[in-house]
Amino acid sequence: MDALKQELKSKIIEVLNLEDIAVEDINDNDALFGDGLGLDSIDALELIVLLDKDYGIKLTDPKEGKNIFQSIDTMAAYITANRTK
């Protein structure tokens, strides 16, 4: 699980072009949206693509994303339970 969390952090930084943010700067329970990392609606859509591309999880209802993308913790838990690759 910890390896997955580290992997997610570096993927998020890369995919969302988070300049000047390092893996160490993101805590497992930090809010990703809103005041946390300051991600926005396009970033949320991009995370949906990331789930599909790297873990074989297809989200069809963007509203589901809201709960899944709360933090690294919630994302890792969801991926662990649902991944197909």
Binding site: I42, E46, V49, K53
Partner: peptide, 9 residues
């Protein structure tokens, strides 16, 4: 086939 919304916009 992974169209990116962040690129599309």
């Amino acid at each position: 086939y992974f169209p990116s919304p962040a690129v599309f916009v």
